[in-house]
């Protein structure tokens, strides 16, 4: 019974945050770009989310006749399900997780690599040249950044001596991993932005060049799933940064652990939005070049140095 309650709670929290981010992002972007943002519907424009959701539900859900129908329908579902599955291993507070897995970090990496399919297949099934170009870019970008996303986490795994996210958090009682693993943190942050293809790395969508990239042909709730999936991805990456580098739910005792977890996660979500508000988009070849030539060697070096220091001090 308590298990089902936890699953329902995690689903409720994740979906609420993802939907709420639609409003929060537009509002914060407005703030940072010195304009109002949505402020007409309800107090402070709060019910804008409901209005958006109603709009997106009642739009015509059109599957183009020239598309590959089963794959076209499957693609957005893959995105949502891989991200929701990953939340199964995220511990929100001690005892408040669906699955206490020994391979949680690997589970996350596996799911994020499966998430590539949604974009690649969505772009291919649309049978549209802009979608296909977006899908090509997405697959190259996500394959690249996946490689050292995993490698950047290995330093943390070495320090905590476990793939289990709960044990990784417990290992940070005497100091957050951000200090010994600063390089790992920076690489993971960059790779996380590229994996969720948020601005400044939203090259697969690149409105200026590719209409809307891989989801040009999507409408109605199928587009909505890509849209919400992006916010869920942002929430997931922020939660993982909190767990891996900022001590998860650990914090001074005047607030309960779960509040600490959400506060820390919220800071990183806001950071993601701030990046969108402030940075321009790099060129495609620049993104790939930086990935392979700078970040991958740095991630490998980080593993080498961490391992050597651990061996030396043991």
């Amino acid at each position: 019974m308590i298990f089902i309650l936890i699953i329902a709670g995690v689903l409720f929290i994740v979906l609420t945050i993802a939907a709420g981010l639609i409003y929060i992002e537009r509002r914060l972007l407005g703030l940072w770009q010195d304009r109002y943002g949505p402020n007409r519907v309800g107090p402070f424009g709060l019910t804008q989310v409901v209005a958006d959701m109603i709009k997106i539900f009642f739009k015509e859900d059109w599957v183009p006749p020239f598309s590959d129908r089963p794959v076209f329908v499957l693609a957005p579902a893959i995105l949502i399900s891989t991200i929701l599955l990953t939340f199964a291993v995220v511990p929100f507070a001690p005892g408040f997780n669906v699955l206490d897995s020994n391979i949680a970090v690997l589970f996350f990496l596996g799911n994020s690599s499966l998430g590539v399919y949604s974009i690649v297949l969505g772009g291919w099934a649309s049978n549209n040249k802009y979608s296909l170009l977006g899908a090509m870019r997405a697959s190259a970008q996500m394959l690249t950044y996946e490689v050292f996303m995993g490698l950047s986490l290995m330093g943390v795994v070495m320090l905590a001596d476990s793939f289990n996210l709960r044990e990784i958090v417990e290992a940070q009682r005497h100091g957050w991993f951000i200090f010994p693993q600063f390089i790992g943190f920076v690489i993971f942050l960059i790779a996380g932005i590229a994996e969720t293809h948020r601005l400044p790395f939203d090259i697969p969508e690149a409105e200026g060049e590719l209409v809307a990239g891989y989801h040009s042909e999507y409408s109605g709730m199928k587009f909505g799933m890509f849209f919400v999936g992006e916010y869920m991805g942002v929430t997931l990456i922020s939660a993982l940064i909190t767990l891996m580098f900022f001590g998860g739910w650990l914090g001074p005792a005047f607030l309960p652990p779960i509040v600490w977890f959400f506060l820390k996660t919220a800071v990183f979500i806001c950071f993601f939005i701030l990046l969108r508000a402030s940075l321009p988009r790099p060129r495609y070849d620049q993104l790939m070049g930086v990935g392979w030539k700078i970040l991958l060697p740095l991630a490998l070096l980080n593993i080498l140095v961490t391992g050597a220091l651990l061996l030396y001090f043991k």
């Binding site: 596996g110 690599s113 690649v120």
Partner: peptide, 26 residues
């Protein structure tokens, strides 16, 4: 063998197959 299970997904399903799809798309 949870480790092998995870690697099966990360490497085969997640990386090798994406490259296959990439080539077929091209």
């Amino acid at each position: 063998a949870p480790f092998i299970a995870a690697l099966e997904i990360i490497i085969y399903a997640g990386a090798v197959m994406v490259l296959f799809i990439f080539v077929i798309m091209m």
